[in-house]
Amino acid sequence: MITQERYRTTVKELLANGSIKMAIGYRLGSTPDRRRPLFIRTSEEADQLVLDSTCMTNLSGYLVTEGLLSDEKKVGIFLRPEGIRSINILAAEYQLNADQIVIFGFDSTGRDVRPLDGRNVGEFSKLLNEIKEHPLQIVKEPLHWRIEKMNAKERFDFWQEEFSRCIKCYACRQACPMCYCRRCIVDSNQPQWINTSSHTLGNFEWNIVRAFHLSGRCVQCGNCDRACPVNIPLRLINQRMANEVLDGFDHFAGLSPTQEPVLASFKKDDTETFIL
């Protein structure tokens, strides 16, 4: 509650003195356990701000809404560490100017929520590097262990079964801060790269393409997984890909606004020869 009250005051001050034109945060949702995104432009709206451990959604995707940042004014946003990494990636991929983003950082342990020091992405550099070196020990879920024990054929069957539920609503894409493409590959029909149909092949194509496109860019905020209306465990795919990229390239996405995108850059001394 103290964190929430302090942040309400801060947002009001920054709005009043013109430092920011808007803050993106959370408010109460339609049931006691739900929170929904809030766009704060006035002091009254700031009073609706809620900040507690149930505020999970990574809101950074709203920053790339067409036109929001084009007036060069600053926008504040409530972010967990994963969300701060998203800002770095969006900046590194030239989707926004990190200096325009005022960060209201927070994190939580159990039900306790605490503020994170800093306002600009640069000020979180130490924290993010610490997270890279000492990643939170995610308690591996039973499903994770089940998949670990599978051979390639069993894994393929498992994912085929999971993807069979996909209805191609693209909630995973729309909820993902990294899916900012103005025209997604599935929306391109000249040529039609990917089947639009939601059948076995079409669902496989979509989910695999997305997994690869997010490799080295996903911060595991969990937005896609929470958004999926048919409960496909997308988190497991993206976690696995992030681990592969970390192991193979020592790349931890979103450390700084100038970090080179791992799969969109090359080094002359790369030991792999096939691509050069």
Binding site: Y62, C169, Q192, S197, A227
Partner: peptide, 21 residues
């Protein structure tokens, strides 16, 4: 705050729009 996904329309028992491909 609408993110423009189709989960509401695809889970809806009456939404009926389709495309021919």
């Amino acid at each position: 705050r609408c993110i423009g996904c189709a989960s509401c329309t695809y889970l809806c028992p009456t939404c009926h729009c389709f495309d021919i491909q």
